[in-house]
Design a binder for these strands. Structure first.
Lengths: 389, 389
DNA sequence: AGAGTTTCGCTACGGTCTTGCTGAAGTCTA
DNA sequence: TAGACTTCAGCAAGACCGTAGCGAAACTCT
């Protein structure tokens, strides 16, 4: 109650806020004239003019001198956000694969790395593969170490505040490693480690099927089952980073739900357990009764946990993601029926369309958020630098 | 992406922000000198001086001229937030009672009304009783209608955005009434209706046992069982206002959990069902095996829903409220054991100490939040008024 | 080539915050 | 009791920011 109040706003901070406002008006838009920016930000033209000049001199924006344009009147100089001022990386460290994405500050992906990893690989082997994937990102895009502004890695299992997965993880031996420490020693930028379901949820809100929603329950349906929560537009981690782990409750049959698919009678013994689910779905689609029963039982078990999350949070949208979301045509409708039976108010249910890149995309988004933070703080230095000149 | 950006900050808004900052530095603190306010807000003394003068001229603050002080140096004039500039009301409309609280803008309760209502009362009777309770608040405190800045009412059952409880409520006939429309027609101030568990959760964070926590699961344990969620310091309503209604899931035995206490063998038939729980708790405390079994079974059922919420949200604290929280000595320890069995990470569990005023207190807090909003918007008019003089 | 239109660059003006200084009102000490 | 010391109140100057408005420049259309 008696603590200091940080809202002490002076003129420098006002300038900072307005600079940020201009940057936001630049980003994600085509090259803009000063007048356009002024109307978008609500600021006056001279203010925007001054700010853009500072932004250009600091390397945040580039000028596009007018070419022969088609409109009447003097053609306006156009400014563009300099997305190449920095780059970010998002990596998905899965059981079978490592997928890395490099993007510029606009979020445009400029490089993709995909590597296979043995499911039973040692943590050291997996870390080394991760390291090589990141190194590949650097060499292929000709990045200097200082060009990387943030690095986010997605792993399976609840991640605590320090980036470790001490409670539980299906990655063998991973609970003993400290990936944040490993990576911060190698790369001179902020490093984050986050749970894969949470990242996939972030991706769905960024570029997926839930861009319009602020309250989202993301359900990862695959050989593992998990959940990620977005409430009020921001990712919920929970006090210990274990939010969404409803599957740990025995009454919720998420741990054993995929076994209905794996143990479906009639499946050929020759195919691997991982491919068995795909076989069940295609066979069920063809009309096989055993396969349809297996799917029904799977959805019934999946729905219990989903219903618990829906009742607890009352989201706007439930997003079905993970490997099984490719068979959403078989899952969505019975899942909706089950939720109608179990819940008070049934939210919209949508199937993910991001495929297996969702976790890496979410990691990218988190890295971009970190980059935004950095832009905000260095925007202040840009101000004071301009003041001296 | 191309929408207008609202962060266009000009000098008037800066002044507004700083005025608000000074108001916040005044509120909840003892009468303060200008120097103290300057250090608290981070602004300079002349700025604070100017703003306080405006605040005093607008009636937001009062001056305390220095009396003979004990410190060295010239004694400072002190400013105090004028909490009597407005009042707010919070009401708990329960099954058995209606409890109303009146408070000034500092949140200091100046009047309390308590009325009994028959559990089976018609909605019209209940509304009329609510109306009389509010009228009593006005007459006893000699308030003018314009002195009331906000009115919040807590009811049982999930409340939608319009303040109605169409999904479900134990108040007979209440799902058909529109309390917001009823009250806005009578009182010239914003009116809010909110779920009782959510309000109780807010109260625990405001004046209760969870003041230090930002992520709270509040469990109402009484003849009814419910939950309220606070995440990141703000109340979670859910997209349709039905967040926390985990009790609707049949696998969670919250609906039937209290029956273990009601149907405890050995209880005298003469006492009412409502008092039976109290009898069971006292008897269990005395060592009766049947009563202890009933309590154990009750806690086991209570824990399933609590575990679902804990696993879903990973809160910092679980607060046990409701009528049964008076018997927390019997509940807390077995509840902790059960959660340890069911959850990945067990949060702290604390028992509420607010008694049966928690819902009304939470309603008061929501009214105060609305009052803060109004202060922010009228603070702008105070600025422009001062500019003209 | 001239008129019309739109943008750019520049200057003046009003508002806000900070810094620095002077006088005022107390307390402490000799 | 008088002087020194401390702290507060008020004023003035300076710096900074955003807004308003004007003339000049550049391009298109007739």
């Amino acid at each position: 109650m008696t603590g200091p109040i940080t809202t002490g706003t002076d003129l420098a901070r006002l300038r900072e806020l307005n600079s940020l406002s201009v940057v936001r008006a630049l980003r994600g838009n085509p090259p803009s004239t000063v007048t356009e920016l002024a109307s978008r930000t609500g600021l006056s033209r001279p203010s925007v003019d001054l700010i853009t000049q500072i932004l250009v001199s600091e390397g945040w924006a580039t000028v596009i001198e007018p070419t022969g344009s088609s409109v009447v009147g003097r053609p306006a100089r156009r400014y563009q956000f300099n997305a190449a001022a920095g780059y970010v990386i998002g990596v998905d460290v899965g059981v079978h694969k490592i997928l890395g994405l490099v993007a510029d500050l606009d979020g445009t992906v400029v490089h993709t790395v995909r590597r296979q990893v043995a499911p039973d690989a040692d943590p050291q082997v997996r870390l080394a593969a991760l390291d090589r994937a990141i190194a590949d990102c650097f060499t292929k895009t000709k990045l200097a170490p200082d060009d990387l502004w943030a690095l986010t890695v997605g792993v399976t299992g609840p991640v605590d505040a320090t980036g470790r997965t001490t409670l539980f993880t299906p990655l063998p031996g991973w609970s003993a490693v400290d990936p944040v420490a490993y990576l911060t020693a190698r790369y001179p930028c902020p490093v984050y480690v986050e749970n894969d379901c949470k990242l996939a949820a972030v991706a769905e809100r960024w570029h997926g099927v839930a861009q319009d929603a602020d309250d989202i329950v993301y359900v990862l349906a695959g050989m593992r089952t998990g959940a990620g929560l977005i409430l009020d537009g921001t990712l919920r981690r929970g006090y210990g980073g274990a939010a969404g782990e409803i599957g740990a409750l025995r009454a919720v049959r998420w741990l054993t739900a995929p076994s209905h698919l794996e143990n479906c009678p009639g499946a050929p013994e020759t195919i691997s357990p991982d491919d068995k689910a795909a076989w069940v779905f295609t066979t069920a689609r063809a009309g096989n009764a055993d396969a349809q029963t297996a799917v029904r039982r799977y959805v019934r078990d999946l729905a219990v946990g989903a219903a618990a999350l829906v009742l607890a949070l009352d989201p706007q949208v439930v997003v079905l993601g993970g490997g099984f979301s490719r068979s959403a045509d078989l899952i969505l409708e019975p899942l909706h029926r089950e939720l109608q039976r179990l819940c008070l108010r049934v939210p919209e249910i949508r199937a993910s369309t991001l495929g297996d890149e969702s976790v890496a995309l979410g990691a990218l988004r988190l890295s971009l958020d970190e980059a935004d933070q950095r832009m905000l703080s260095t925007g202040l230095s840009a101000l004071s630098a301009a003041r001296r000149s």
